[in-house]
Computed example of a mutant assay.
Amino acid sequence: MTLPVLQLTAYGTPGPQGSKTKNAHGAMYESSAAVKPWREAVKSAALDALHHDEAWMALTAAVRLDVTFCLRRPKSHFGTGRNASVLKASAPPFPTGKPDLDKLVRSTQDALKDAGVLADDSVVATLRAEKAFVLAAGALLTPGAVITIWRLTDFFKEPTA
């Protein structure tokens, strides 16, 4: 079995990147206030995961990136009063609203590049990304993301049975 080259967990509210807004003076800025703290959380988690590997070099060959973003459920998914902690039967099983998955991936890839994990986000040749609610099966207990990276060349070196 091929082992991932890096696996890490970033905690915090995942923030989307990509939407820009123009202010009254014509300057462009990120429309999401969550993108900067999210990128810092991912960068910090990546640097923590790599702190023991002094020989680490940013990945320049094709990689596979798997990311599971864990998002907090909106209060509207729960009952009120004494049922405030009870999930409504009508609550959706998966997050289908904002933030957009592709924009979450974009901010995460940029943070991995900033941390020196990836030479560029263009080295990601295969991507598996998903959004899940916190506390769902296999999800984190708090908002964040589980990020796993494999070198694709390792898949081709693996012996076949």
Rank of each mutant, 00 (worst) to 15 (best):
P37Y: 12
L3I: 01
L141K: 14
A137L: 05
V63L: 04
E158A: 11
R82T: 11
V86C: 01
K131T: 08
R106M: 13
P143T: 03
V105S: 08
G18Q: 05
W38R: 10
N23Y: 02
P74M: 00
L112T: 09
M57N: 09
L118T: 05
L65G: 05
D121E: 11
K22A: 09
A89R: 09
D53I: 06
S19Q: 11
F155N: 13
M1E: 09
V146Q: 09
A24I: 06
K20E: 13
L71I: 10
A62T: 06
L118I: 11
V86K: 15
L152K: 05
L59G: 08
A46Y: 07
I147E: 09
S85Q: 07
M1Q: 10
S31L: 06
S19P: 00
L47N: 13
G26A: 09
D110N: 09
L71Q: 09
T2G: 00
A34K: 13
Y11A: 10
G81Y: 03
F133P: 05
P143N: 08
A132Q: 14
R39E: 14
R128Y: 07
A49S: 15
P93T: 10
A84F: 07
A125Y: 11
D102W: 04
D48Y: 07
W56T: 13
P14N: 12
P92N: 11
